[in-house]
């Protein structure tokens, strides 16, 4: 899973597989982080409580 695992090899298989995986995980991670931070900032500004 990580380059420091002893069975890791820098070959095409590992680069393609883990490249795709970490790419997807990064998008998900950044996306959800953005949502949470923005929600907290908006809440601090008082947004959301005047919804109704």
């Amino acid at each position: 899973m990580f380059p420091f695992n002893f069975e890791w090899i820098w070959d095409a298989g590992h680069i393609v597989f883990h490249g795709g995986l970490w790419y997807a995980l990064t998008i998900l991670g950044l996306g959800i982080t953005y949502c949470i931070i923005k929600a907290a900032l908006d809440a601090a500004k008082g947004k959301g409580s005047q919804h109704h």
Binding site: L28, G31, Y34, K38, A39
Partner: peptide, 18 residues
């Protein structure tokens, strides 16, 4: 809860990415 309300809104906004 404003936080959850905003979070839900934000998540919908970028739902296409997910």
């Amino acid at each position: 809860v404003p936080f959850f309300h905003n979070l839900s809104h934000n998540m919908h906004e970028i739902m296409a990415v997910f």
